[in-house]
Amino acid sequence: MRASDLKPIVALTAMLAALPLAVRMNNYYVLLLTWILYYSTLVTAWNVIGGLAGQLDLAAASYIGLGAYTMGTLLTRLDVTPWVGIPLGGLVAAGFAALVGYPTFRFGLKEAWYALATISSVVVLQKLFLVWEEIGGPEERYLPARYGELYYLRFRGYAPYYYILLAVLVMVLLLNVKIRRSKTGYYLLAIRENEEAAEILGIDVRKYKLRALLIYAFVTGCIGGIFALISGYLHPHHFDTWTSLQVAILGIVGGAGVGSIYSLPATTFIIYSISELLRSTLGGWIPGIHLIFYGVILTVVVLLKPEGLSETYERLYGRIRAALLRRRAGGG
């Protein structure tokens, strides 16, 4: 990893760490920021499989649900701290990913078929947990309400979760930069551009796709555990196909794998804020207006700018920078 890779991460972290203070810890805004960070971490993790490896994965909710149930069940039944439960949830999610992913890549499922198989896995798990009364079942299972204890990681406000997610986001960003610069990263890009050509060049396509999938599933499983802590209960609807779709939509609109990785949190920030604004102002008259917005933006971006918005940001950033430099040159 180079120093130039670290600079933007440090700047971003400092900015995001200050944000809750900028809104004076207002509960509503901190909650909003927490969800923005939650989706940012998911999309940034998704970049490994969806961006670098170019597989349109819609199983994010499977991994979130498995991570949530693993952490939550260990916590409520055996009093195991989330510090252990969260990574274990990541492992369970990665195990499930391997179970589904190995044959999926082995039999060469690609493109739409991969997307369909992965979104089906979400529904399968949701229904199985609904029927599996010992662990899941149709009723909510609440996590212990022991607020403020570090052992239980349960807090009354959202700010602590915001900072936990910020730490996770930084780790996932670093992970992405590291993978991108590694041999695995170059292999994955080659696979995304042309799988047959990559295979002919001697890249073990299946192995590297599976590796990307496992990394992504592990991280997403961990985020699922944190999600359960924030929501405070377990329910089969944590296996939510809409979450999967939302993550993929943000990834595609953000141009996952095309430009800079920072385009993904930036896109999440913009789209989630607009959709929340729509929901809070017009949602009373038009329920689902914020979700309509997701559909519109995805369709429009894919039809007009199929490579996503990352390049647009870069051009914008370049223009702003040039304007600032010009002003400084003119002033001095």
Binding site: I249, G288, I292, Y294, G295, L298, T299, V302
Partner: peptide, 30 residues
Amino acid sequence: VIDRIVGTYPLAQIAATIGLMVLLRNLALA
């Protein structure tokens, strides 16, 4: 929609029709 994405690369087809799916579902909800 479809006329613009026929024969283009598969990810664009999936993404455009997923957009349509989300749009129609929530228009119905609205």
